[in-house]
């Protein structure tokens, strides 16, 4: 039995989470991305970066909620961490469970495959026929990378997170790549013993 199974994402989702209609979430996020595209005059790199910053800030705050709700303890391996991210993190915040695959031999790099449809992209279509640039440059769900990076930073994990594939761009699946750079040392904040 793997260690992560002592925490149950389904139970927490069912009993301990205030829920809202996912369409509301989809619409809100959609109007944010659309507005950013207009604001930056379709400079999609700039849009990606703003979404990433938003996500990072969210991640820094979200981890607190995550730990409070789940009581998850320190993971021993990055494999365990990834299980927790998928089966508990994604489950209790977005009610989806991405699959994890493509492990590198050193167990430091893996892929999260987001299920379709997911609450960020449901009913979303990019205008790829009228704007050829968008399918090469925009990562519609970039906010997720920011969230993951920010949240993991707060538990002393320096991880690279980025999209490599997105169904919205016409790829066969939506894939986020995670790469563990290093485990940061626990440091006691100045002024605390």
């Amino acid at each position: 039995m793997s260690k992560s199974s002592k925490y149950n994402g389904d139970d927490i989702w069912k009993n301990n989470v205030e829920k809202i209609n996912s369409e509301l979430f989809t619409l809100t996020y959609g109007s944010v991305v659309a507005q950013l595209c207009r604001d930056f005059n379709n400079n999609y790199h700039e849009v990606n970066n703003q979404l990433d910053k938003m996500g990072y800030n969210i991640g820094l705050r979200l981890i607190e909620e995550f730990l409070a709700k789940t009581g998850v303890r320190r993971c021993q391996t990055f494999r365990e961490t990834s299980e927790i991210i998928s089966k508990i993190g994604f489950k209790i915040f977005l009610n989806i469970v991405p699959t994890i695959e493509n492990w590198s031999s050193d167990n430091k790099t893996c892929s999260l495959i987001l299920p379709e449809p997911n609450p960020l992209t449901e009913f979303v279509e990019l205008p790829i026929t009228t704007d050829s640039k968008i399918s090469k440059e925009l990562w519609y769900s970039q906010i997720l990378c920011g969230v993951l990076r920010g949240a993991l930073q707060m538990v002393q994990l320096d991880v690279d997170v980025n999209f490599v594939k997105d169904v919205l761009r016409g790829d066969d699946r939506t894939e986020i790549r995670l790469k563990l750079n290093k485990v940061l040392k626990d440091e006691i904040p100045a002024g605390e013993d």
Binding site: V17, K19, I20, F25, F93, L94, N95, P119
Partner: peptide
């Protein structure tokens, strides 16, 4: 379908 209200 639902998501966590905290996410929003």
């Amino acid at each position: 379908t639902y998501v966590n209200s905290i996410s929003l």
